[in-house]
Design a binder for these strands. Sequence first.
DNA 1: AGCATTGTTTCACA
DNA 2: TTGTGAAACAATGC
Length: 258
Amino acid sequence: MPELPEVERARALIARTALHRVIAAVDDTDSYVCRPHAPGEIADALVGRTLLTAERRGKSMWCETSDEGPALGIHLGMAGRIVVDDDEAGDPRPRVDRERWDRFTIDFEDGGRLTLRDSRRLGRVRLEPAIHALGPDAAEITRKAFRERVSRSRMPVKARIMDQKVLAGVGNLLADEALWQARIDPRRPANALDEAELDRMRNAIRAANRKAIARGGVHTGTVIPARRRDGVCPRCGTPMERGTIGGRTTYWCPAEQH
DNA sequence: AGCATTGTTTCACA
DNA sequence: TTGTGAAACAATGC
């Protein structure tokens, strides 16, 4: 997906353009994207109301709604974008307008429209999303909480930081980028990292997020272009190592990451 | 044709 | 009971 930086840009787009506009109609007929709701259920809850806020924790977004309405949760999944009128944000890959990928739509009384445009349909829209099941946001977690939560397992450190219950917002690309910046081997057991290494890891995640939000997405990371079979480390030129960690394809520099 | 994919959830198994 | 890994999910792109 879209990882934390792309979701933050999508959230900001909604906050900037979609709040306080009266909802006239909702298309929630994609039963996979809107599961477990029955068709019409989300529409019934939203029509006549407005979105009051646009919030985010990790890769999950939600909007509070007017008149004590239910919160509207939106997750971009693996390839989702948010489109509001003529603006869009989310999945960074360039893509021409493809309205057939519109999986969920809100029409406003003023004639404008908010859409979840998602080629793969792994995005999700639901009422009252379980935000509390997520760990602290990766961009805001304190040093103390990061140390405690991440080091509480023997899982490979990469798998641990990608566990959304531990820490919300780190996806596959951001994990590779941050581990490379912090020079830590992604296979290391999380509970084998010392405090200095945990702090380095946290700083790298926060810096990678900040940079990616400013530049437009995780794909702007330094090591991302080297994530390919013939890629070499951007710092030392050593061929990148490739493997599967936590079920995801992982690249790291065998010379620098320990 | 076959394989890989920036995410999440479920299920089998240790 | 807890933790871990693979598979499923849906669709597209190389």
